[in-house]
Design a protein around this nucleic acid. Structure first.
Length: 695
DNA sequence: AGCATCCAT
């Protein structure tokens, strides 16, 4: 008897003992009978691993692939591994996965796990998803931006029966899997589709609050210490059993592991980032191997932004095999006063520029009335539309331009893509590709907590910036990329210069990916080619200006800058910038992003000359954003439209010689008129939306 | 004079 056989049998028994197994036939029927189906069940009910297998066994794959999306890469990969194991096939054959930089699928793949972003990319190439028989959106309650967009797209495409049958012999089926809390809302959104609940066996969980973290400690960043302290208390004071600890990220997990190792070498622990409901899960078996129905214990730190709904869901994990206890490290008062009920969905708190371009490229022109599960503020949509117009991705009627069709191919913020394409048109993409990649990864500069080491790191970083020419943070990023890449030992180089090697490695992969996309697009006949006539030393910054001219700021008094986006926000150069303390020498700058902490800071900054943006700046204000979303033509009457057009003509006549800053101030009044109209339209839309969902 | 979330294409 060989070991693999034994474990396979065990795994098979495990699958049959899962709560979902008893509902197999009914589930398959429910998927077959409905275009939309919501499935809910506790973590561990087996819905993620088993449902796709049931659908496979039922033969759905013959009509097209069974696709399953996950909000996170690790989840997509590890679930695919497990399912291929359970189905006894090689990963990448019948069962595969696709995440960015890692496509483990083949011609034979019929059960495909992937990130939600990957499926969105696939829809761009094949809007009808003609290779799929069923798409399962998993973890919909997490409300990731891409899952929300997929939900809206699939609703829009499939609820329209006419469209659904067009170009497809078998209608696509959509299963949305979610935690119990969100199912009513999801069902209503999807035309009141049925909800299939997999009842889970759960045992009572008693929760108790801690004493260390109260309302005054909202910013407490050292909560890991408290977690470790409570873990050790539970370890020595409570009955035997497993302990689960929820932590916010990889670095917190590492920190906790280090501390535990220092304080209690005898504890056997491992961490596991495969769990789908948390970012990191630390498992501490207390006394060697445990019986399975041991009392389970959990405690929850208050990571910045954790919500009551998430905390409650996690506490439920303690009651999966027997009664359990949940130890929270924060006080009852903290729970009452500091924690929100739910997370604001990502779609309502992020820049929508890239998403709106994707929608437009998919033929969704009226992006304001797109069916959003939770509608983002109209202001955010209009802002995205304006930015797309400004970087030539859409024309003034809101139609995607040839350039926009090229831009959507890049996994970048459209402004950055615009700068890259400008450089490519001059044949100098080599200076922009690394910058685009470096701006796509997390901060590459390490800043240790230890004061001495911090000084040392800051010094090294300043030296790098100076060596790169100084006074241009974009150029610093380019140089760091090139130096590291050219080094004999890139990882040692990073260590020496206090640079995140992991971040740089991913910047290298991203640069390669961007280069490949660019090369593919350059084969096309309509790829823009231009000749640069200015000074060679200005080429780099001129390219950046093409993409970033909506991020222009001008120094007003002292170290205070004012943004030129019409808001006139007072901003400062971030202390990490090579332009910090050089403000007196500056006049106009462009910046990559703004960060709000004690002040509004500009991060990644570069000085420019006013002449470079002079002709571009009026574009920030000359257009009516409603028209960009195709709403003006349908909603505003003829008279209003005529008024708008004459106003626009007047603006264009104003010319650009007058002092830009003064002009922008003047427009604040005009903006308030626009706002009033925006509110009116918003109300009207809400009424319409209400009618749609209650139909 | 003073810097911080995480995930994803």
């Amino acid at each position: 008897m060989s070991k693999p056989n034994k474990s396979e049998t065990k795994r098979c028994d495990e699958a049959k003992s899962l709560p979902i197994f008893q509902h197999k036939a009914k589930l398959i029927q429910a998927v077959k009978d409905n275009v939309f189906l919501v499935v809910t069940g506790e973590t561990g009910s087996g819905k993620t691993t088993q449902l796709p297998q049931y659908l496979y066994e039922a033969g759905l794959w013959k009509a097209g692939k069974i696709g399953v999306t996950q909000p996170r890469r690790v989840a997509a990969i590890t679930v695919a591994q497990r399912v291929s194991h359970e189905m006894r096939c090689t990963l990448g054959k019948e069962v595969g996965y696709q995440v960015r930089f890692d496509d483990c699928t083949s011609q034979d793949t019929v059960v495909k796990y992937m990130t939600d972003g990957c499926l969105l990319r696939e829809i761009l190439a094949d809007p009808r998803l003609s290779h799929y028989s069923v798409v399962i959106l998993d973890e919909a309650h997490e409300r990731s931006l891409n899952t929300d967009i997929l939900l809206g797209l699939l609703k829009k495409t499939l609820l329209d029966v006419h469209k659904a049958s067009k170009g497809r012999s078998v209608p696509l089926r959509v299963v949305v899997m979610s935690a119990t809390l969100e199912t009513g809302k999801l069902s209503a959104f999807l035309g009141h589709c049925p909800v299939f609940t997999i009842p889970g066996r759960t045992f009572p969980v008693t929760s108790r609050f801690g004493s260390a973290i109260g309302p005054k400690d909202v910013d407490s960043s050292s909560y890991v210490n408290e977690v470790v302290r409570v873990a050790l208390d539970v370890h020595s004071g409570e009955m035997a059993g497993d302990i689960l600890v929820f932590l916010t990220g990889q670095s917190e997990i590492e920190k906790a592991c280090d501390m535990l190792y220092e304080k209690a070498e005898n504890i056997d622990y491992r961490y596991d980032v495969q769990d789908q409901t948390v970012e990191g899960l630390l498992i501490l078996p207390l006394y060697g191997s445990m019986p399975t129905d041991q009392q389970r214990q959990i405690f929850q730190p208050p990571p910045p932004g954790i919500r009551k709904s998430e905390a409650q869901q996690r506490a439920g994990r303690a009651g999966r095999t027997s009664a359990g206890k949940c130890f929270r490290i924060y006080t009852n008062e903290f729970w009452e006063k500091c924690m929100l009920e739910y997370t604001v969905p990502e779609i309502q708190r992020t820049s929508l520029t890239a998403v709106v371009l994707t929608l437009k490229c998919l033929g969704v022109h009226d992006v304001i009335r797109f069916p959003y599960l939770d509608r983002p503020e109209e202001r955010l949509i209009l802002e995205a539309l304006k930015q797309l117009y400004q970087c030539d991705a859409i024309d003034r009627r809101g139609r995607v331009t040839q350039l926009g069709e090229l831009m959507v191919e890049f996994p970048l913020h459209p402004g950055l893509t615009r700068a890259l394409l400008k450089a490519a048109s001059f044949g100098c993409e080599d200076i922009l590709l690394p910058v685009a990649a470096m701006l796509s990864v997390e901060n590459i500069f390490i800043r240790p907590g230890h004061p001495e080491k911090q000084k040392e790191a800051d010094k090294k970083h300043r030296r790098l910036a100076a060596k790169a020419g100084g006074m241009n943070d974009f150029a610093t990023l380019l140089s760091v990329f090139q130096w590291c890449k050219a080094s004999d030992s890139p990882s040692a180089w990073c260590k020496d210069h206090w640079i995140h090697w992991r971040a740089l490695k991913s910047a290298f992969s991203i640069e390669t990916q961007l280069r490949e996309i660019l090369q593919r697009l350059q084969q096309k006949r309509d790829f823009p080619v231009e000749t640069f006539t200015g000074k060679k030393s200005e080429l780099f910054r001129r390219c950046l200006c093409t993409g970033y001219f909506s991020n222009v700021a001008r120094r007003s008094v002292g170290k205070i800058f004012s943004t030129m986006d019409g808001h006139g926000t007072a901003v400062h150069v971030h202390p990490s910038s090579s332009l910090f303390e050089q403000e007196a020498e500056l006049d106009w700058v462009i910046f990559h992003d703004m960060m709000v902490t004690s002040r509004v800071y500009l991060r990644t900054v570069c000085p420019i000359r006013y002449e470079w943006v002079k002709d571009l700046l009026p574009k920030l204000h000359e257009v009516d954003a409603y028209e960009l979303s195709n709403i003006a033509r349908e909603e505003v009457n003829e008279e209003e439209l005529a008024k708008l057009e004459s106003k626009e003509a007047k603006r264009q006549k104003e010319g650009s010689d007058e002092d830009m800053a003064k002009k922008l101030e003047k427009r604040n009044d005009e903006a308030s008129v626009g706002d009033a109209r925006a509110r009116y339209l918003q109300r009207k839309l809400q009424r319409q939306q209400h009618t749609t969902t209650t139909l």
